[in-house]
């Protein structure tokens, strides 16, 4: 994470080099926050919060400005929510949703690997019956981590796949069922209806399920992630977020306005394409990497 250290250095130079917090410092902080994808509003909100404290003389030492900003960001990201606990039900059903190409299928592979390592037995459900070779992709992941995959033919009704998979889960005594879904634009009404139907069918089969609905967001995405989170949340009760592709140079700062507005916890972060590249989310660490 070389680029992140460099960014932190920049902030240090910025605040250490100046005796008081003046407009230049604020401008530079604005640049850092905006270029980390926090967006105009969240950036203004954060800068207002710290500048209030500057005016109240709580933050006369510029070196403490950065720490104050980190604290504000970590506070926003520390959303109060029940923990992610796949042992809480049997089978524990997880639905993974999101727009095209954000990393849903890969994340499912990584998550199943984590769950398996923790001693539970996962089962994967190939609910993306639309995209070319999406089923095969999930099957390759199943082979890689040695976890069974329930599939039907390409083009099958995804809610039927989910319905049958829950039977299979019971028969095989699986502890955790993870349902992959096709990527879809949050603005496409018919595709969102299809997703809701998958949800309804799962719920009908098992009234407490799905126990987790995880929305996958790509750290490379800018302000559009806010619209994604809003519209997927309108469609169903998301329980958490997963932020992928944090191994690149994108900061994923857009989760700050998202967590602020929607109060959704970030469950995990993706930091690569390998099976062990999924980590629990740590608000403090994230804020530090941001600035």
């Amino acid at each position: 994470h070389r680029s992140r250290e460099r960014l932190a250095d920049r902030v240090d130079r910025l605040v250490l080099g100046k005796k008081t917090i003046d407009a230049d410092v604020m401008d530079d902080l604005e640049e850092i926050l905006i270029t980390s994808d926090l967006g105009v509003q969240a950036t203004q909100l954060l800068l207002e919060r710290v500048s209030d404290r500057v005016k109240r003389k709580e933050l006369q030492d510029p070196a403490r400005l950065r720490e104050a900003l980190r604290e504000e960001i970590a506070r926003i990201l520390s959303v109060d929510a029940p923990p992610f606990d796949p042992a809480a039900a049997k089978p524990f059903v997880i639905m993974v949703i999101g727009v095209n190409g954000v990393g849903k299928t890969t994340t499912i592979g990584k998550l199943a690997r984590r769950i398996k390592t923790s001693g539970l037995s996962p089962l994967l459900v190939a609910g993306d019956t639309f995209r070319a070779a999406a089923i095969e992709q999930l099957e390759r992941w199943g082979e890689r981590i040695d976890v069974p995959v329930i599939r039907q033919k390409s083009g099958a009704d995804p809610s039927a796949v989910a319905f049958d998979a829950l039977d299979a889960a019971q028969a095989r005594k699986a502890d955790v069922v993870i349902v992959d879904t096709a990527g879809r634009m949050h603005t496409k009404v018919n595709l969102m209806e299809e997703l809701k139907k998958v949800h309804r069918v799962i719920q009908k089969k098992m009234p407490t399920a799905p126990h987790e609905i995880l929305l996958v967001l790509d750290a490379t995405t800018g302000q559009n992630a806010i619209s994604q989170a809003r519209l997927f949340r309108e469609a169903m009760n998301i329980t958490g977020l997963i932020l992928t592709k944090l191994d690149g140079t994108a900061k994923g700062g857009v989760i700050v306005p998202i967590c602020h507005e929607l109060k959704l916890p970030v469950r995990f972060i993706g930091i690569g394409e390998g099976m062990d590249d999924l980590r629990p989310f740590d608000p403090r660490e994230f804020a530090e990497a941001l600035l």
Partner: peptide, 12 residues
């Protein structure tokens, strides 16, 4: 390139 890309687009 994805049209949803944020500020990182320049670096990429």
């Amino acid at each position: 390139a994805d049209a949803m890309t944020g500020q990182d687009a320049v670096r990429v």
